[in-house]
């Protein structure tokens, strides 16, 4: 595993929260309840997200992904991942496993990076929410500026990394 799980730190955290709960130490209790509420809201999303990733893995052939999102795919590949990102739920923490599933199936790096950027800035439920609180003009400016910038930066970074023969690797 590339990123090591900091066992001691997590254990210390758990002990701290438990002791706070017993002794009634308020900051520790708050941190514990933050942990619980965030865990619950993530658990509402993650199971379904990973089931969809699994279904994608068995039903969509590598050939098909390569054709539409691979090295020789057209500029349309960015439109496809824009649509996929629009329907992505959650946040970056869902986008990363999806991005890896796409990459594993042969999507090129530029497209994978663009997907992550799009998933950050143009998830449809979020856009609706934003527009209703901040106004349509605010949302339009943000989208019209950030989408081209995401494409440009993803192409730039993807080409740079591909030229250096860099590859994404499995988190295992």
């Amino acid at each position: 595993m590339k990123a090591k799980f900091p066992v001691i730190l997590i254990l210390a955290y758990a002990v701290f929260v438990v002791i706070s709960l017993i002794s009634g130490y308020q900051p520790g209790k708050d941190i514990g309840s933050n942990f619980l509420s965030f865990t619950l809201s993530m658990l509402k999303i993650l199971p379904a997200a990973f089931i969809l990733i699994g279904l994608f893995q068995v039903w969509i052939s590598k050939k098909r992904v390569e054709k539409h999102l691979g090295e020789d795919s057209s500029v349309m590949s960015f439109v496809w991942v824009l649509l996929l990102a629009g329907t992505t739920v959650g946040g970056l923490y869902v986008a990363f496993p999806v991005a890896w599933a796409l990459y594993e199936k042969g999507a090129r790096l530029q497209v994978v990076l663009a997907y992550i950027g799009f998933a950050a800035v143009c998830r449809i439920p979020m856009i609706i929410f934003e527009a209703s609180f901040m106004g349509v003009k605010f949302t339009m400016v943000r989208l019209l500026v950030s989408i081209p910038l995401v494409v440009v930066s993803s192409v730039f970074l993807g080409r740079y990394l591909t030229a250096k023969d860099w590859r994404m690797t499995s988190p295992e």
Partner: peptide, 21 residues
């Protein structure tokens, strides 16, 4: 597919816990 889902989920789960902390 479900097996793949489970495996992918448990692989990244430790990092999710770190993030939640």
């Amino acid at each position: 597919a479900l097996k793949i889902s489970w495996k992918k989920f448990t692989t990244i789960l430790p990092m999710f816990i770190v993030m939640l902390v």
